[in-house]
Simulated assay, not measured.
Amino acid sequence: MNEQEPPPIDRLAIQRVLRRVDGFAPGLRLDDATARRVVEEVITDMPTRTDDDRLMEVRKRLLIATE
C-alpha cells in the first residue's frame, strides 16, 4: 500500500498571509523565520479556510510564541 504524500503547501497563500502579518511579528519582537514557520503551519493545518481565518490563527499563535 502506497502512502499518500501530503498536499503541497500553498506558496501564494503563505505570501499573502506573510504580507498581512508583516508589521505584527516584528512588533512582538519575533524574527521573520519564526513568523514564516507559524504561517506555514497554519496554512498546512487550515488548507480550506480563508486568508482572514488563517490570519487570525497566525496572530494567536504568534502571541503564544512570545510567552
Score class of each variant (00 low, 15 high):
M1D: 15
M1H: 15
E3C: 10
E3Y: 10
Q4H: 03
Q4E: 08
E5S: 12
E5I: 11
E5A: 13
E5V: 12
P6Y: 11
P6T: 13
P8K: 11
P8N: 10
P8F: 08
P8S: 12
I9E: 00
I9T: 10
I9K: 04
D10H: 02
D10E: 02
D10T: 01
R11M: 12
R11L: 13
L12R: 03
L12K: 04
A13I: 03
A13Q: 08
A13N: 03
A13Y: 01
I14L: 05
I14W: 03
I14R: 02
I14T: 08
Q15I: 14
Q15A: 15
Q15W: 08
R16K: 08
R16V: 04
R16I: 02
R16E: 06
V17C: 07
L18T: 11
L18Q: 15
R19S: 15
R19E: 15
R20N: 08
R20S: 06
R20A: 07
V21D: 04
V21K: 03
D22F: 09
D22L: 11
G23P: 01
G23Q: 07
G23M: 05
F24C: 10
F24I: 11
F24D: 10
P26N: 11
P26E: 09
G27D: 09
G27W: 07
G27H: 07
G27C: 01
G27V: 00
R29H: 09
R29T: 01
R29C: 04
L30N: 02
D31C: 04
D31F: 03
D31W: 05
T34V: 07
T34I: 05
A35L: 05
A35N: 07
R36N: 10
R36T: 14
R37G: 00
R37V: 00
V38H: 00
V39L: 02
V39R: 01
E40N: 03
V42D: 01
I43H: 07
T44E: 03
T44G: 00
T44H: 00
D45F: 07
D45M: 12
D45C: 08
D45I: 05
P47H: 04
P47D: 03
P47N: 06
R49F: 08
R49C: 10
R49G: 06
R49T: 10
T50I: 08
D52E: 14
D52P: 05
D52Y: 09
D52S: 11
D52H: 10
D53F: 13
D53G: 11
R54V: 15
L55E: 13
L55N: 04
M56D: 14
M56S: 12
E57K: 09
V58F: 10
V58Y: 09
R59F: 05
R59H: 08
K60L: 12
K60Y: 11
R61T: 05
R61Q: 13
R61F: 07
L62Y: 06
L62E: 05
L63S: 12
I64M: 02
I64Y: 03
I64W: 04
A65Y: 11
A65F: 08
A65I: 08
T66K: 10
T66Y: 00
T66P: 00
T66V: 10
E67Q: 15
E67P: 09
